[in-house]
Design a binder for these strands. Structure first.
Lengths: 157, 157
DNA sequence: TATTGTTATACTCTATAACTATA
DNA sequence: TATAGTTATAGAGTATAACAATA
């Protein structure tokens, strides 16, 4: 026995390697595992720094890239329900990062825009995403990274 | 205007295509989007049929492939906390799908095993995963599917 | 009547700490 | 004193239905 290892790590090292069984061929399972890695990385590079969760970050990026986007479209792009989106927008608006604007032609709908503060934070957060992706590139070559994104795109099309 | 389209779909068709902006190059964003697809497919092929959520399914697969596995290891493999795992095991045990067994050598730990019912359900659910993956293969070639799993594996390593 | 967005409510998931029983 | 697992509790995320305003 190796006395330098704590009990749990020792047991782990001795144990038979974990078998994935039928999960080995299931894309969704590997997707979920990979998400743990990207989520941890996101949290460190962006989440903790800008006090944004993954969906809030994506929301800001989409409003930045599509100024005036209507909530309905955003809800679908982010795969969140309308009530959840209302709360998300409420929160970001309370932080003065985005603002709602009434649609003059149709009083039911609204347009979303970044405030000046929101634009600055969105730019900074987008910049912080670069080292985050570089970190992932340490496990993937640049070609693999591009290939991964392409394949994932085919799945969500 | 095309009167056959409902208003929302019509507006959507007319709107500028959604720009991903900086999200376009962020693997985690595409991971989240692809997960929507795999999750929907999982729900239809397995979740609804066997009344299992994603984690319960993975748990059964891992216990099937690694009989006698200890909860601690399972918690890490599934990326769930120990308290959550307790509740998951409670639920599956109440359905008589898995059983806990005390470790004779160390009374603190336990081993997990499928019951006869659990084995049958796990086999059936694993079989149902095949058409599910075939459905994904309709959007990906077999080579792309294998490549995707390999790349995801590198991310979670 | 249908649609956009909101409010209300309940349910699940997740995270932390405190506890037990064993070692 | 440390570890495996459990219980308790609070917080966040998610889903549904019911609603108000507008079309």
């Amino acid at each position: 026995m190796n006395a330098r290892l704590p009990a749990a790590a020792e047991l782990e090292a001795r144990a038979a390697p974990l078998s994935f069984g039928p999960l080995a061929g299931i894309a969704g399972f590997h997707l979920a595992r990979a998400t743990v890695t990207t989520q941890t990385s996101f949290q460190r590079h962006i989440g903790a720094v800008f006090e944004l969760n993954k969906v809030e970050f994506s929301l800001l990026m989409l409003v930045m890239a599509n100024p005036g986007i209507v909530p309905k479209r955003l809800a679908r792009a982010l795969a969140v329900t309308a009530p959840k989106l209302t709360l998300l927008i409420d929160g970001l608006q309370a932080r003065r990062l985005i603002q709602r604007e009434r649609n003059a032609a149709d009083g039911r709908s609204q347009h979303l825009l970044l405030t000046e503060r929101g634009r600055k934070l969105a730019r900074d957060a987008a910049a912080a995403a670069e080292p985050m992706e570089r970190e992932l590139l340490s496990q993937l070559s640049r070609a693999e990274h591009a290939m991964l994104i392409e394949l994932l795109g085919k799945l969500s099309a």
